[in-house]
Structure formats: structure tokens, C-alpha cells
Computed example of a mutant assay.
Amino acid sequence: MSASAGMFSQSFFHGTKADLKPGDLIVAGYQSNFTDAKPLSWVYFTATLDAAIWGAELAAGPRPERIYVVEPTGPIMDDPNLTDKKFPGNPTLSYRSRDPLRILAEVTRWQGHSPDRLQQMKDGLARLSAEDARIID
């Protein structure tokens, strides 16, 4: 189901290692944080800080982990990678859009997952990759 971004009165977050500032746009057409697949035709975001923390912690590259408060600039839909496959009903409040996300602010104080939990998640993603599973539609 698609909805207009203006319908929401909640905050949305995007976890990454990209160095951005308020007013910048996150656009489709970049590599996923989680796979070596072709560039994505969607931008992904969440309404939970925990999911954004995962995005930042699992992002590839040497840059510092960052979480941004974002504003969708167009229609959004539930992220089928999570809502259809792992968490029916979208309890993770994960979304995607073909339109850019505008950076409103950076979340500068957040607590990451424990090193053991982070390694478990990375091991799980590596297993999926070795099995050639499609992680992202």
C-alpha cells in the first residue's frame, strides 16, 4: 500500500556511513549497505531508531556510522524485504520510496548493539550471501 509522506506525523530515520548535512537528499541509484547487488532503485528508511542503528552498523566502508532524521519527498510503501518475508504487518516500521529522502538532522547520541549481537547479524548476512539469497528486492 502506498501513502503520501505528508500523512505521517512521526519521525523517520536512515542509517548509513555517508557524511551528509541537513537539506541534502538521499537518492536511489546507490549500492545497498548489505549486498554487492546492482544499485538500488529504492531508498530505504524506518520509523524506529533501532532499525536505523542496524543500517548504520551494517553499512559498508570505513567512514563513521551515522543516523539521520529524514523526510520522504514522495510516496512511500512498506519495505517488502522485511514486511513480507520476515515480519508480517511491518512491526519494524520499515519503508521504501523511489523519491529522495531529505535530511532534516543527524542523530548524534545513540547506543549501538553489542559487539556479539553485531557479529551475529553480520554472520547471518554472510550466510545469506553464501547461499546466494536475494536479501533486497
Rank of each mutant, 00 (worst) to 15 (best):
M1E: 13
A5F: 14
G6R: 11
S9T: 11
S9K: 11
Q10V: 12
S11Q: 12
S11I: 01
F12R: 08
T16Y: 06
K17W: 10
D19R: 06
D19K: 09
D19V: 08
D19E: 09
K21E: 14
D24K: 08
D24R: 09
L25T: 11
L25W: 11
I26R: 04
V27S: 11
Y30M: 06
S32R: 02
S32Y: 01
T35R: 09
T35M: 06
D36L: 05
P39Y: 02
L40W: 01
Y44F: 13
T46Y: 01
A47L: 05
T48A: 11
T48N: 14
D50C: 07
A51M: 11
I53A: 05
W54P: 00
W54N: 06
A56M: 12
A56L: 12
G61V: 07
P62G: 13
R63W: 02
I67G: 11
I67C: 12
Y68A: 05
G74C: 01
I76D: 05
T83D: 08
D84R: 12
K85A: 13
F87T: 12
P88H: 08
P88M: 06
G89T: 10
T92E: 08
L93M: 15
R96G: 00
R96D: 00
S97C: 09
D99W: 09
D99V: 01
I103G: 03
L104M: 15
T108D: 07
R109M: 03
H113L: 02
H113D: 00
P115M: 12
L118K: 07
L118A: 03
Q119K: 15
Q119G: 05
K122E: 10
D123L: 12
L125K: 07
R127L: 07
L128A: 15
S129A: 13
A130I: 06
D132G: 12
R134S: 05
R134K: 07
I135R: 02
I136M: 03
I136K: 03
D137G: 08
